[in-house]
Each structure stands twice: as structure tokens, then as C-alpha cells.
Simulated assay, not measured.
Amino acid sequence: MNEDLTTLRKIVQKTNTDVINQLHNLDERDRFYLLIEHMEYLGFPFEEAEVCVVPKLKK
């Protein structure tokens, strides 16, 4: 379970960074909608979400 929480924490940090970076490319109305959509995603119970985890590929 600890590994799941670590993975979840990394996902949230990465998506937050991606959203913030994307805000620079949008007009103010689209920024608002992107932030609202992202907050809804963050507020959704993790246990109920369908999460596809792709295993790391060996080089």
C-alpha cells in the first residue's frame, strides 16, 4: 500500500506541474475550465478510479 501512495503522490505532482505549464498557453476562460476539471480529477476518490499502470520496460 505504501508503494501505491508513493505512486499516487508522484502522479498528482506530475499532473499539477503539467496543468500549471499548460496554463501559459491558454486564454483566461480556458484556464478556468482546465483548473476546474483538474480539481475535479484530484477530488475523485482514488479507490474508485480506473487506473492503468504500465510497468517499466526493461532496457
Rank of each mutant, 00 (worst) to 15 (best):
M1S: 05
N2S: 13
N2E: 14
E3C: 08
E3Q: 11
T6G: 07
L8T: 08
R9Y: 15
R9N: 10
R9L: 15
K10F: 14
K10C: 11
I11P: 01
I11R: 07
V12G: 04
Q13I: 13
K14R: 11
K14W: 13
N16Q: 10
N16F: 12
T17I: 08
T17C: 06
T17L: 08
V19D: 01
V19I: 05
N21M: 14
N21D: 15
Q22C: 08
Q22F: 10
H24Q: 08
N25F: 11
L26G: 02
D27N: 05
E28I: 11
R29E: 03
R29A: 04
R29Q: 01
R31V: 01
R31P: 01
L34P: 00
L34F: 01
L34Y: 01
L35W: 03
L35I: 06
E37G: 11
E37M: 14
H38W: 06
M39D: 06
M39T: 06
M39Q: 06
E40S: 10
E40V: 09
E40I: 11
E40M: 10
Y41C: 02
L42W: 06
L42Y: 02
L42C: 00
G43I: 05
P45I: 00
P45Y: 05
F46G: 00
F46R: 00
E47I: 12
E47M: 07
E48T: 12
A49Q: 12
E50I: 14
C52S: 01
C52I: 08
C52M: 10
V53T: 09
V53A: 07
V54K: 05
V54Y: 11
K56D: 12
L57D: 10
K58M: 15
K58V: 13
K59T: 12
K59P: 11
